[in-house]
Nucleic acid binder design. Structure first.
Lengths: 149, 149
DNA sequence: ATAAAACATAGCATTTTTATAGGAAATGAG
DNA sequence: CTCATTTCCTATAAAAATGCTATGTTTTAT
């Protein structure tokens, strides 16, 4: 399924912040994330407004300000990040034939739509930002080291 | 997550056809489905064009014509129905930061996007149209019978 | 004071969704 | 053979969502 730009940018940004999490104790500016990932800074602002509302990042205004992760990467799941920024992914499916055929409506809701939502949430809940950082790191060192082994 | 009108209509229509599957050996007209479910017939035509392309229904043109399920309900899954009509649900998520940060890109793809697609497909694969018919029937008789038990 | 940064809001172009309209082609019934 | 019925095909259009830009305003360290 297609994850929107907002969702993808949010995940990439949070993973990128997590990569420098232990080193950098201070905050990270949007412009640095923007440059590192090649994403428009203006658009990232909107994404971070949602991440902040979802309590995934905290912010410090003014010069030398920036953003920080609100929690350590191992306590943040992909589900939470996407939930904070993705609108339609977590919208409930509307009624369809509720008037004329309420039994079909109810059966579809229970056995298909609700089951699907459950499966999606379950799958995303299990992926932590820490895992993604490790996964990315593994690939990087694999690329770098492969020739010398 | 939000399933589009096309997907919902397709599921409702296929379940509705399956309900009369053993009785009616002949074909079912779009207009009868349209009236039974309260869905625009003109729009249903477009949905059925996709269902036919996906080989879920067969059609007979002309007077006394109509549509039939291509297979018995127990051999049709919700996954197949949605796959035939839903475009974005089965679109692959595009690249995001592939240029600047290929490791993050690859990690996200593998651990989030591909894992999500797998979970969605797995969940939808398990739901058959037969199950939905039985589920709807159970609700119906529960409503009707409850007072007399 | 000033520059750096978050924060807020408005607007716009493109694409997708959800339909409607009108007719063409096929076919069974009388 | 003709006609009503029904699938099939294509075009159009309104509404919504998406992705992004623009322009400021506030806050704060230096």
């Amino acid at each position: 399924m297609r994850i929107s730009a907002k969702g993808r940018y949010a995940l990439a940004a949070v993973v990128s912040m997590a990569q420098q999490h232990p080193q950098n104790d201070g905050s990270i500016t949007l412009i640095s994330i923007s440059e590192r990932l090649g994403i428009s800074k203006i658009y990232l602002e909107q994404v971070f407004a949602l991440l902040k509302r979802g309590e995934l990042v905290t912010s410090v205004k003014g010069a030398q300000g920036g953003y920080q992760l609100a929690r350590p990467p191992r306590l943040i799941s992909a589900l939470e990040v996407l939930y904070a920024v993705e609108t339609t992914l977590f919208d409930k499916t509307e009624d369809t034939v509720a008037e004329r055929s309420p039994e079909i409506e109810t059966a579809l809701r229970a056995d298909v739509f609700d089951a699907l939502d459950l499966a999606v949430a379950e799958a995303l809940k299990q992926v932590t930002i820490e895992q993604l950082v490790l996964s990315a790191e593994r690939r990087k060192s694999a690329n770098a080291g492969m020739f010398y082994i």
